[in-house]
Simulated scan of single mutants.
Amino acid sequence: MSTTTTKLGLKKPNFATDDIENTLNELADNFQKLDDDSDDYVDFLPLSGAYPIAKRFYKKTPKSGDYIGWVNTRTGTSAPTWQKLKQYTNGDLIVPTVDNGHIYKCIQTGYSGLTEPVFPVSVEIEFGDVRGSNTWQTTTQYKKDDIVLPTIDNGRFYVCLQAGESGDVEPTWGLADGQTIYDKNASWVSYKRLKWKEAGVASNFRPYGKIE
């Protein structure tokens, strides 16, 4: 029967008792383990995938004054940071620009808002992405990039494209992404609202190994 090495747990066949098929399988397992444990060299830190704590990535072209790579300080999933007015689809993952230990999944295709939401940390909580929005009002002076919601919810939000005063009658809100809606002196651009859900723990890669 085979034994295992102390550090990597590689299998050492016993040629006196192991058959050829078993020995070949154990050698194949050894090669796979060596490959899994080998160093990874990258140009950029991966923004997808699940990684254990202490996972390292090394830079392909380190430079003086730079860091040799990144080390993960928390077991979790990697994802890109939230971006404003970006279209996300169901299943897309993001993390806040300021780490809070959590990752979030898009559960309703649409566009993010102009201001990063306050990301909740309760497990599996669902929330929207229209921070700073208000319900549209008549004869109101709006500024560029103000966000309004129709008085009757239609699943969309509207970003002020042209500053000006709104009309005394609510406009007919367009239902196509990027459509312009004219509103007396102001104008708006239409976007579908998305929805996020807290989806678990985010990895936390940090630079390490300063090169003097």
Rank of each mutant, 00 (worst) to 15 (best):
N134Y: 08
L8F: 09
E212S: 00
Y208D: 09
Y191D: 01
I103H: 01
A54W: 12
F31T: 12
F157K: 03
V121K: 08
G65I: 02
S166W: 04
A163R: 05
F127W: 14
D66S: 15
G167Y: 08
W196T: 03
D36T: 08
L10R: 06
K63Q: 14
K192V: 11
E116P: 02
A202G: 03
D129M: 07
L85R: 13
P207C: 09
T135Y: 13
P80G: 04
T140Y: 10
D183G: 05
N100K: 08
Q179C: 10
I211G: 10
P52R: 11
V42Y: 05
E21D: 14
G76N: 07
K63P: 00
F15T: 09
T139V: 10
W196H: 12
G132N: 07
Y158N: 02
W82E: 04
N204A: 12
Q108M: 12
S38E: 13
G178A: 08
N25T: 09
T5V: 02
G132C: 06
P80E: 15
K33G: 00
G101Y: 00
K60N: 12
L93V: 02
T77F: 07
P207M: 07
G132Q: 05
G155A: 09
Y104M: 09
I94W: 07
A50M: 04
Q87I: 02
P120T: 08
L194A: 06
K12H: 02
D40C: 09
N72L: 07
D66F: 05
A16W: 11
I152T: 15
D129K: 03
W196M: 12
K197E: 11
M1L: 09
E198T: 06
E198V: 05
I181E: 05
S48N: 02
D145W: 03
Y104P: 03
T17A: 11
K63R: 11
E212V: 00
N100S: 07
N185H: 14
S64R: 11
D37F: 01
E212F: 01
N14F: 03
R193I: 01
I125Y: 14
E21L: 14
G69L: 11
I181D: 05
A54T: 14
I68R: 14
K60C: 01
I20F: 13
